[in-house]
Amino acid sequence: MSDFKPKIVAFCCYYCAYAAADVAGSLRVQYAPEVRLVEIPCSGRIDPVVILKTFEEGADGVYVAGCLEGDCHFLKGNIRARQRVNYVQKILGELGIDPERLAMYNLSGAQGGRFAQIANEFTEKIKKLGPSPLRGR
């Protein structure tokens, strides 16, 4: 599986994860190149359909990254995001796709290192799980 290069989509809140990615950049924190960011104004914007369709398109892993709990720029968007991630995880289970392929993370806009750590951690996990059963189909 060493040559498996997963495609991972990270839905990132503008106020935290997107900003943290910028911080990681300015600090030149190196991390796994497999993650592709999709910026959203708040993790609360994410909806189950978007996540599920991202898997359908062939993503090997998806995560939603929102502000630290209690610190959402829009108060509770990140809590809603977590609920929706849990919901889609259940559906993935029903479909026979490992729910571990979907995750929710929380971090602050200043945590460049944490952003990189999440990217590495999640990429590692997906590499272990192997390609999505939908990859290339």
Partner: peptide, 22 residues
């Protein structure tokens, strides 16, 4: 405020967050 939390939850997709539509 443009967070889109409503758009993410609307059961009939009646709400869209402009610029970040599904």
């Amino acid at each position: 405020q443009g967070c889109g939390t409503c758009a993410g939850a609307c059961p009939n997709k009646a709400i869209t967050l402009e610029h970040y539509r599904s």
